[in-house]
Design a protein around this nucleic acid. Structure first.
Lengths: 273, 273
DNA sequence: CAACATGTGTTAAATAATAATACAACTGAA
DNA sequence: TTCAGTTGTATTATTATTTAACACATGTTG
């Protein structure tokens, strides 16, 4: 049982320096993300939380109560349901404010978004995913697609692929192997060979244009942000939409903008410190 | 001692339904926010974490380790310092994706930002603060001032004051009483009488223009987002900067835009459900 | 209205978190 | 380079804190 407690949730943090209660608290918070994705629910009942987090009823009760007291969840006393509360926003601020990358990138992303009136995003890799770190929105889009913190698979997104293009082959293989290669749209490329080819192409070009790979009508262009060794640790991405934009227009206007913005960020990043 | 454990950090969660370890985990994360604000540090050593969080060395060690394993902190093995990690971004997503307000507001804020090429923000009240929930940035500004999750005192910000203008008097008094009335700039109004007057004015007008109250050269305009009882629970805010914008221009262009955007959000909010 | 599901509160039991300690690794001054 | 001081790491016995089971209350649905 002493071990089972950790196994249940995720890791084996087998040593005495791992506090399981912290993990369980976060498990409750994550239940809301999966609850939204899988069940489409904004708020969850105690038993749903229990289900989604893998904690038993008693534990769910204690952690939920704790999170309410701390201001990370709020409870609707009428429906007895819980939902994420404003306190959670603090962590995004905490992350960004201590990120040198974000500080350098922000003004350049804003500038870039004004050039052609497009959305401009900064993405960072996390395992087999990329995460949208900063978004400067300009077009309306499907709500979830406009929120910072959104995760997408690296293998089928422009930012994911340009980042892989500037990583060594072993890393690329590891990511491809561990990715769930699922179709996001009917055009999504999921054959490892074809994916490697696209990465190869992106490495030669220094950018990538990715059409309808993760969302219909969306064409996504991205270029890598690299450190002094040429290793990518982020990407600048600009999405545009299909009837209005053609590949020719993108090649002419978006590609140079994306490349230049990414290069400027890379440059400042390792010159300033 | 049994009690002291809770007292140390913050609350009295005196019952058995409160899990102290969760609070301590968050205390470590918050140390980074205060560390950034008070010491200007991006990363913290173990002893700094201990200092800032109020946890002893052993506890800091355990919680820090736990948070690293969970992906919320990362450790630079060379300098032995810790910093916030990418995992923290998940919570912003979790909050926004389950917020009906955010979903309704997002497209309207984007639209509004294009009208005159200005930044447009959505703010929500939290105790004596307001928090910038969604930002659609258009102008470059002091980095920290551009990040979602930023907190500002309600009493000296346009969004704070318009929200108070649409709350009952008791709530207003409570907030004023509990606020630390400090000068943010040399023009900040900090006398309770004068603050009440500004709130009164904002109630009559349905909006507020606030000049250099929290930042030099910044003029901030805001209008309330209200529920079906007329109670404000958010605000739309547009900041503009001083040489370029004059009060007349703001009255003419920004005020109607802010009011209309806030009204549209309010309308959708309680019509859709 | 009954049967069921879900939420709430309390408890004894013992696991998992604690804080003290000792050791190791840096840091910088002499 | 050495040494003192500081900071980080690892281990442990102790027990306070979390646990899970239970019983009760409340709401929900056929």
């Amino acid at each position: 049982m002493a071990v089972a407690r950790h196994e249940t949730i995720a890791h084996a943090g087998p040593n005495t320096l791992f506090v399981g209660s912290v993990e369980k608290g976060f498990a409750v918070l994550h239940a809301f993300r999966t609850g939204q994705r899988e069940l489409g629910l904004r708020d969850l009942s105690l038993s749903q939380i229990s289900e989604l987090s893998g904690l038993d009823k008693s534990a769910s009760q204690r952690f939920t109560n704790t999170l309410v007291q701390l201001g990370y969840l709020e409870k609707d006393e009428r429906t007895r349901r819980y939902r994420p509360a404003l306190g959670l926003i603090d962590f995004y601020y905490t992350y960004l404010v201590s990120s040198r990358l974000a500080e350098i990138a922000m003004p350049r992303l804003i500038e870039a978004s004004k050039t052609h009136g497009t959305t401009v995003n900064l993405c960072e890799p996390d395992g087999t995913d990329i995460i949208y770190t900063i978004r400067v929105p300009h077009q309306k889009a499907f709500f979830r697609a406009t929120i910072p913190g959104r995760r997408m698979p690296a293998f089928c997104t422009a930012p994911g692929l340009v980042i892989l293009a500037n990583r060594n082959k072993q890393e690329v293989e590891t990511i491809i192997e561990n990715s769930k290669l699922v179709q996001m749209t009917e055009w999504t490329v999921i054959e490892p060979k074809a994916i490697r080819k696209r990465i190869e192409q992106a490495r030669r070009d220094g950018y990538i244009i990715s059409s309808q790979q993760s969302m219909a009508h969306e064409i996504s262009t991205a270029a890598p942000v690299v450190d002094s060794d040429g290793r990518a640790f982020a990407a600048v991405q600009i999405p545009v939409y299909m009837p209005e934009w053609t590949t020719d227009m993108i090649e002419e206007k978006i590609v140079p903008l994306v490349i230049e913005t990414a290069r400027a960020i890379s440059g400042s990043y390792f010159s300033e410190s």
